[in-house]
Design a protein around this nucleic acid. Structure first.
Length: 479
RNA sequence: GUGGAUGUAGCUCAGUUGGUUAGAGCGCCGGAUUGUGGUUCCGGAGGUCGCCGGUUCAAGCCCGGUCUUCCACCCCA
């Protein structure tokens, strides 16, 4: 026998039950997107490789799935590279890949969106608000909550610098997780604040490294942070003063009010760091705006986390990250931010945008672990026709046809109905109904057909079933 | 990309220092019960022990490789 068939690492099949639950998540998110005025968009699974490279940082480039050129890809490789390989010389990183491949699977939905906006700029009315729910692919090493193929649910608005967009996106996130019944914490920060902090500590030349360590705070805590900086070779000033600085400028959400200078802002002002101050004011404006729209929020739902960094290189302003407050998954289930110049690299300047992305697969994992699907998800038929005759024959044939006719009548009234197709014992047919969660079975044999009636039995109830007319059956199903 | 675990029936897992024919529970199929499922009883099917190679008289067990899943790092949805 042949080897068992399989699927590539990090990909999954989804059973009917899983699909019903996934669709529930997608539908919930989509409905909220539409409520906020976002409209649907789809882009191809593959993009030109050059559209994607260089947009996600060095690490991101490595994780892009590249598609081998059609035909004999090797024939298209330049003589320079061929000769270098034959001679055993080193070929510059990415060079060979670029010559063997000119297409790649999309890595996220934001960059293809930016590409779309540039390409269709003359047809678009700005500010342009679109949502997009499609799979993306990353050549990452799979782990729990980390897949090589997964869905992102994005909402972005491009062509507006207003912080109204940030405020509304936070409100949107709150609505989605509220609808899903999931308690979350939304953390907000601003890239300009991080830049301001690097200026404050005089480490602009090692800004990336500095920020990467800072982002680890939630893992190593205040106690471990100085050691991380010492190991990386930062100055004693950073090692000694950063933690006290962070403790001083941390601010609970309830104290963040528009017009009231924050501790961070005072620090920046002392050193004349106007850029960082702008970032701080933006965060205050966003959180203040959210609080005004949702006075009912509890303290921990939206917070300013001064150490939140996020990896994607193109963010320049506000950044968001959402984590579930319950469950074992510690990684983020939603994230986003503002990018001032994502379309610039494609030739369209001065197009600031901001967006967020929900990780549907991770949300699924969390909801499953917490048992939050339960009654939301239906999907089973309302009624199964069950025919007792377990042998094929003319009588069975006419009973079956009569049931199909009844099914059509019921379907036109809006019910989902199926007829058990094979001649089987009643026990087997009931088991089928039970497993599929079908609430009613209609037993129809020769006698029922002659009377124009059915014997209706409710699954789960300990009863034999009642003989009734079709009108009575319809009323039962309606109730 | 680096380091570390894991894999035995459809599912969850036993399997002794290497030793005859690899087990259990649940599930599945059939019967007790030919028009009433879920309970009970009886019976049955189902395994190239992830895959390939090696050591050995002998491998589920030891060794090497490979794939999968998982964990840490990295990064992220």
């Amino acid at each position: 026998m042949a080897n068992k068939p399989s699927i590539p690492k990090g990909t999954r099949d989804f059973s009917p039950q899983e699909m019903l639950r996934r669709k529930y998540i997608f539908n919930t998110i989509e409905k909220v997107f539409q409520k906020y005025g976002y409209l649907p968009l789809e882009t191809p699974a593959m993009e030109n490789l050059e559209t994607l490279t260089g947009k996600y940082g060095e690490e991101g480039d490595r994780l892009i799935f590249k598609i081998l050129n059609s035909g004999n890809a090797w024939d298209g490789v330049s003589d320079n590279v061929k000769n270098a390989i034959k001679a055993g010389d080193a070929v510059p990183s990415g060079r060979l890949a670029a010559e063997l491949s000119e297409k790649a699977l999309r890595y996220d939905l934001t960059v293809p969106f930016a590409r779309y906006v540039v390409q269709h700029q003359n047809e678009i009315a700005f500010p342009f608000k679109r949502y997009q729910i499609q799979p993306v692919w990353r050549a990452d090493r799979p782990q729990k909550g980390r897949y090589r193929e997964f869905y992102q649910c994005d909402a972005d608005v491009i062509g507006s610098r207003s912080l109204v967009n940030e405020v509304e996106l936070v409100l949107l996130m709150l609505d989605v997780f509220d609808a899903l019944g999931l308690a979350v914490e939304i953390r907000v920060n601003e890239r300009k604040i991080l830049h301001g902090i690097t200026q404050y500590f005089g480490v602009e030349d090692r800004a990336m490294e500095f920020i990467t360590i800072l982002d680890k705070l939630d893992k190593v805590n205040f106690e471990g942070l100085p050691e991380e900086y010492r190991k990386a070779g930062f100055s004693e000033f950073v090692v000694q003063e950063l933690v006290p600085f962070l403790k001083q400028v941390q601010q609970p959400t309830e104290e963040i009010v528009w017009g009231k200078p924050t501790a961070l802002n005072k620090k920046f002002a002392e050193k004349g760091l106007a850029y960082g101050s702008v970032g701080d004011l933006n965060v205050v404006a966003i959180i203040d705006g959210v609080k005004r729209a949702r006075p009912d929020l509890t303290e921990s739902q939206v917070v300013h986390d001064i150490t939140l960094a996020r990896g994607l290189n193109y963010y320049t302003g506000a950044i968001f990250e959402v984590k579930a407050l319950e469950g074992s998954l510690r990684s983020s289930i939603c994230g986003g931010g503002r990018y001032d110049d994502l379309t610039g690299i494609f030739g369209l300047k001065n197009m600031s945008g901001v967006g967020i992305s929900f990780g549907a697969d991770r949300i699924y994992d969390v909801l499953l672990e917490l048992n939050k699907f339960s009654s939301h998800v239906g999907g089973s038929s309302d009624l199964l026709f069950v025919i007792p005759l377990d042998e094929d024959g003319p009588i069975r044939n006419s009973v079956t046809n009569w049931c199909i006719g009844l099914s059509m009548k019921l379907r036109r009234l809006g019910f989902s109905v199926e007829v058990y197709p094979d001649p089987s014992k009643l026990a087997k047919q009931f088991t089928y109904a039970e497993k599929k969660g079908i609430p009613y079975v209609a037993i129809v044999g020769e006698s029922e057909m002659k009377e124009g009636k059915v014997t209706l039995k409710r699954m789960g109830a300990n009863e034999k079933g009642d003989l009734m007319t079709i009108e009575e059956l319809i009323n039962k199903l309606k109730g």
